[in-house]
Amino acid sequence: MEIDYRLERPLNLHARLRVEGLTALLGESGSGKTSLLRALAGLIRARGRPFGGLRPEQRRVGYLPQGYALVPHMTALENVALPLRGPGAGRTARRWLERVELDHLADRRPHELSGGERQRVALARALALEPRLLLLDEPTSALDAATRETTIDLIDRIVTEVGLPTLLVTHDRYVAARSRSLAVLEHGAVRQQGPPDEVFARPATLGIARLVGFANVFSGRVAGHEADGVWIETEGLRVFAPTGAPPPPGRTVHWGIRPEEVMIVRPDRPLSSPLARNRLAVVVRRLVKKGLAYAVRVEGALVLEVLLPRHVQDRLRLREGDRIEVALKPTYVHLFSSEGFSS
């Protein structure tokens, strides 16, 4: 489904994106994600396609706000039956409850359900509408990590089975990574959309880079060309970046690498030739645990953030003050397109 919406209130926004299967919309808080969803549901005034000018009652757009908005005096089953009419309503509602694996809680009222269960009731209710588009506002923000995983799995499975275009708004990049397509909202427009892997590896702008955890970004000058890329000089260091559209020599460009993709060179192992190019001697400045991994800051010609899996740290046993060598494998070096920085 192609979406093209313009909002003037509460903020100026022009969003063009494609919703196919489970599509995530990532953006900072205040970027207008929720407003866009509300506009699509018909709850705030906006111009655009599809559904433009229709009242919420006429759109058949399922909308799940952050608080789930269940009717407190109705049981789970009654809530799911809310959009249904006619004699078969009860049976249909029960089928949807089964679909979200909650039929055993059909007679509970919302306050007798956990956050994750409420969420699933709200999901079943929106699905019972047989919507043309499903909108989910931060569906995992109030859930613990384990429930977050199962909830995303369930949402992904159901909307895929039903073949329902679903737009999921989030500021959580782990949730965003689970989508089929990822759109990023920045400065009032969708600046990039693509498979999550691509957006995570090749963010179009510095702002998007920050949103997707792309912590190492530098500026440098184009110092030389090769057939498959360019040499960039940054702080006296020459880094090779592959690119199909090399910028002219002397141009200032931005490049970067994800913390997960910076490699530590092991002195006991010889390097393959592409890795031999982008090497740099550094000192370990800071080492903190981050989940089961380690966030390491190293300093040499550049300051780099490195995310070290536990099994690597278990072998290397790095400590603050250690002198090591890191390699920036050219495949993982991302050259930002210059348009990303014009705005």
Partner: peptide, 11 residues
Amino acid sequence: EVLEVSRTLGL
């Protein structure tokens, strides 16, 4: 919010 959502549910 519940009133808004019930509108989107066609009520």
